[in-house]
Write a protein that binds this DNA or RNA. Structure first.
Lengths: 161, 161
DNA sequence: CTATCTGCTTAGGTACCCTAACGATTAGGG
DNA sequence: CCCTAATCGTTAGGGTACCTAAGCAGATAG
């Protein structure tokens, strides 16, 4: 059908991901959250409404605890998050969204939905669902294919629900 | 079919892309190219066998000319590339792979094919082809959906053919 | 109660990419 | 032709988003 050759998989993934992140970030900016950087959105993508430990946040966002801690520090200082002792473990702290943070969280989740809906409209819902399902299966199959294991875990991802 | 909830699109794209890049980079390392960094692979993904201008390289790899120039500088010093005046334009220089660079180029193209074949085996060739086609269509549809246009162009991608 | 493990933090990088500004060449119009 | 404007490449100077290494404080297990 397509006489035009398609880009290699790396380009396709990279450009789509960048487009997604820019879109999401742009919405945050337009919503008035000018003090948020792109990396901060990952925190909102990983956190629970009731609070989440730093280690857990880092794992969900695929990054190291110190890296996540820096993002949390900034969001705390900007009034989006608060740290409070975890009652079930004296070492741990629960990182919870403040009222301001919950507003961002709600808007971010809605924004992701909107973007995904836009994709579904662009190529058709079935094809978009198939895209997501195939990517998920690729990731699930990956450990067997070849493991990198060069680092504990490397990578940065985006807003999850 | 899948009772497990799928990850949001950003995570799916991000993790898959990272996995792809790590895989490609690991192969380069194992092939003995220890002086190559991950970013260098983009150059080989953008260059033509007969030589390509810096501006063109930068555009194909979705980056600014100074950024690409730095990568080219390093690859030139490592003996993978050479710069020679472009006969058709006194300002421009053609960046060409040396014999050593052509070996890397060939291996890199083969590696990408292998990786893509691995994906096709993991989820089935039809689903993999559909994945690529859908991503391509999403990118083609994007300019209308919403343009970012915040920068000239931002982003980093991977090996193309 | 000591040994180890886990959660978090501090300190100090590293990889990768950007903008701004400039000299050199080419292209286009009067 | 000449003069302006655009283009190719480069230099200089960031800046973001991550990382590793090391350590303390609280928890867990023999």
């Amino acid at each position: 059908m397509n006489t035009r050759r398609r880009l290699p998989i790396g380009q396709l993934l990279g450009r789509t991901l960048r487009s997604f992140r820019e879109d999401l970030y742009r919405r945050a900016q337009e919503a008035g959250y000018r003090d948020l950087r792109e990396a901060h959105l990952q925190v909102f993508g990983a956190i629970d409404w009731t609070g989440t430990r730093l280690t857990e946040l880092a794992a969900r966002a695929n990054m190291t605890p110190p890296s996540m801690a820096e993002l949390v520090d900034e969001l705390q200082q900007a009034g989006y998050l608060e740290r409070r002792p975890d009652p079930s473990d004296g070492r741990a702290k629960l990182i919870r969204p403040t009222r301001k943070g919950r507003r961002v969280l709600a808007q971010a989740l809605r924004a992701v939905e909107e973007i995904e809906r836009g994709y579904a409209e662009a190529v058709g819902p079935e094809r978009f669902d198939a895209l997501a399902a195939t990517l998920q299966d690729l990731l699930d199959a990956r450990p067997r294919g070849f493991k990198a294991e060069r680092r504990r875990s490397t990578g940065s991802d985006d807003l999850q629900a």
